[in-house]
């Protein structure tokens, strides 16, 4: 079927989506740019590890070096001219951008006419996408708090002293994979989904599929307890009479603890296995305090819950695994 390529172009060329399109280019470029330098440093590290004699004398950088060169240069003019150049380049980019694309202005705000789709600005689309999978207080309040505090916690739980002030991959495999998974694999992917895939009613439209506001989406998701047929019938027999009307709630609430608990145990165990999988990572692990391990495990397990929920909802069509009167997971 020939897709609606025109619509894809309309979305991509929407003025407010230009940054998202730019990110599609910029983030892979800078990932490559950083990892290329990491690779060069890794080769140097490998060489120096093999040759302790060389390690004593080498200046330990991949940048060119000559003994007669001064180690430091004056900020005026060597740094300031670069800053001036950067400012000019940015100004030119801004001017060209501002002359060619106009900032969007819709109709006057009107509470009686709902925008469809009503989308957050592009940098918050990741959060809006999370709202599809979790209760509002989890997606809108708990998760952002976890992201902010989790980012702030990074320096205090990363006990690896290597790779401080230079690009490296081999000395910080786990840290780099975790960050790229979080930043690119989750945050940016959710932003892209929010931009290109979520159409009217925030429904899922594949790229080039026409955004049909009249499309009807049938509810095809079930909760995990429905799959297992949990209805509280047998639980009613052992509950006190006063609680019997609530037997189904009790059964579902108690049942949900099992998959969530299993997930926490299994995911924590899996991360433990990963961070102790090599002799080097075991050395890092042995440096960590109990508090550091607990906080790191908690953050990792919560982080992994996002893609798992995503795949359960979109591939397995499972909505919640734990239903309670107060929250759903």
């Amino acid at each position: 079927m020939l897709g609606n390529w025109h619509q894809l172009w309309v979305i991509a060329s929407n003025p407010d989506n230009v940054p998202v399109v730019a990110l599609i280019v910029l983030v892979p470029f800078f990932t490559w740019f950083g990892l290329r330098q990491a690779k060069a440093n890794d080769r140097l590290i490998e060489k120096l590890e093999k040759d302790p004699e060389l390690a004593r004398t080498h200046h330990r950088k991949t940048q060119p070096y000559h003994a007669s060169w001064q180690k430091e240069v004056h900020v005026w003019p060597y740094l300031l001219r670069i800053e001036l150049l950067a400012a000019i380049v940015v100004t030119v980019i801004l001017l060209v951008w501002a002359l060619t694309i106009n900032a969007p202005l819709e109709e006057l705000a009107n509470a009686t006419i709902t925008m469809n789709p009503a989308k957050a600005p592009w940098y918050f689309l990741g959060l809006q996408e999370m709202l599809e999978y979790f209760d509002p207080w989890i997606a809108g309040v708990l998760m952002p708090t976890f992201i902010i505090l989790g980012l702030m916690a990074i320096p205090f739980i990363d006990e690896n002293p290597l790779g401080n002030g230079y690009y490296t991959y081999k000395q910080r495999r786990f840290a780099i994979w975790t960050f790229i998974a979080g930043f690119e694999g989750m945050w940016l992917v959710l932003t892209l989904i929010g931009t290109f895939i979520r159409g009217p009613g925030f429904m899922w439209f594949w790229p080039t599929q026409t955004w049909d506001p009249d499309r009807i989406e049938f509810l095809t998701t079930r909760n995990l307890d429905q799959i297992f047929g949990i209805n509280g019938k047998w639980l009613a027999h052992i509950l006190p009479a006063s609680q019997q009307p609530y037997a189904e709630l009790w059964a579902k609430g108690l049942f949900g603890i099992i998959p969530v608990g299993l997930y926490f145990i299994f995911a924590a165990w899996m991360f433990y296995k990963i961070i102790t999988s090599t002799p080097f990572s075991r050395r890092i692990f042995s440096r960590m305090s109990l508090l550091q391990v607990v906080v790191m495990e908690l953050l990792l397990v919560v982080m992994l819950a996002l893609p798992i929920t995503f795949f359960m909802r979109n591939l397995l069509r499972i909505k919640y695994v734990w239903e309670t009167p107060w929250f759903n997971l």
Binding site: E106, A109, N110, A111, M115, P121, G140
Partner: peptide, 20 residues
Amino acid sequence: DDQLGFWAVTVGTNMARATP
């Protein structure tokens, strides 16, 4: 004060209703 901003802020601040 256009539709774009109005609905984005409506969506954004609706999340605040759900703050624990």
